[in-house]
Amino acid sequence: MIIEPNPTQPITMSFETWIDTFKPIRNPLAPEGNHDGFAFEIIDEHMTILRQTSKDRVWTLVSGDDGESLFLIEGLHLVNREGYMITERPWTEGQGGYEILVYGPDEDDGEPAEGVASDKETM
């Protein structure tokens, strides 16, 4: 049986599954930095790398509306951004998006925390 993604609901998965699936790359400017060296910060040198990367390999770390959760969502976003990550494998458009819980109060029950605001920047 093949389960088709729902185009109106985001695909959710654990951060560990996301790492195995999309293969994040280390930030060459901060290989020992945040999130095991995978995070790109909101500074000029890092943003230059992000803008030179194919948009389907860029992910945004965003804070949840609860103020305690951190999510990864596909693309380069501005609202609630905490940083960015780049992956070896691209994400796919038209599937309702992705919502990866990096950490938060609902992490232990398997349900993603609610309320991810976003404002995708045009690259």
Results as ranks from 00 to 15, higher is better:
residue 27 N to E: 08
residue 93 E to Q: 13
residue 44 D to L: 07
residue 96 G to Y: 01
residue 90 P to C: 06
residue 31 P to A: 06
residue 64 G to K: 07
residue 70 L to Y: 02
residue 112 P to N: 15
residue 7 P to Y: 04
residue 88 E to A: 08
residue 34 N to D: 11
residue 78 L to H: 12
residue 28 P to A: 02
residue 29 L to F: 06
residue 74 E to G: 03
residue 72 L to E: 06
residue 34 N to L: 09
residue 26 R to L: 14
residue 76 L to P: 05
residue 107 E to I: 14
residue 15 F to T: 01
residue 121 E to R: 11
residue 8 T to K: 07
residue 39 A to T: 10
residue 50 L to E: 01
residue 39 A to Q: 11
residue 78 L to W: 10
residue 54 S to D: 11
residue 83 G to C: 06
residue 2 I to R: 11
residue 24 P to R: 05
residue 69 S to H: 07
residue 31 P to R: 05
residue 53 T to A: 10
residue 43 I to D: 12
residue 71 F to P: 05
residue 81 R to H: 13
residue 93 E to G: 12
residue 4 E to C: 07
residue 123 M to F: 14
residue 29 L to M: 04
residue 50 L to C: 05
residue 4 E to A: 11
residue 26 R to W: 03
residue 112 P to V: 15
residue 40 F to N: 05
residue 17 T to V: 13
residue 27 N to M: 05
residue 1 M to G: 15
residue 79 V to S: 14
residue 82 E to D: 14
residue 8 T to W: 07
residue 111 E to N: 11
residue 39 A to Y: 04
residue 17 T to H: 11
residue 75 G to A: 03
residue 122 T to I: 13
residue 68 E to R: 10
residue 91 W to H: 13
residue 67 G to E: 02
residue 24 P to E: 02
residue 22 F to K: 00
residue 100 I to P: 02
residue 95 Q to A: 08
residue 106 D to Y: 09
residue 111 E to C: 09
residue 17 T to N: 11
residue 121 E to N: 09
residue 63 S to Y: 13
residue 78 L to E: 15
residue 66 D to N: 15
residue 88 E to S: 10
residue 91 W to L: 05
residue 2 I to D: 14
residue 73 I to T: 09
residue 118 S to N: 05
residue 27 N to C: 01
residue 94 G to N: 03
residue 121 E to P: 03
residue 6 N to R: 07
residue 78 L to P: 01
residue 120 K to W: 13
residue 36 D to R: 08
residue 117 A to Y: 14
residue 109 D to C: 09
residue 30 A to V: 06
residue 10 P to S: 13
residue 13 M to R: 12
residue 105 P to L: 00
residue 6 N to Q: 08
residue 46 H to F: 06
residue 37 G to D: 02
residue 31 P to T: 06
residue 19 I to C: 12
residue 101 L to W: 02
residue 14 S to A: 14
residue 95 Q to C: 08
residue 26 R to D: 09
residue 110 G to C: 09
residue 30 A to K: 07
residue 123 M to V: 12
residue 15 F to G: 03
residue 115 G to W: 06
residue 119 D to P: 01
residue 79 V to E: 15
residue 52 Q to A: 15
residue 18 W to M: 12
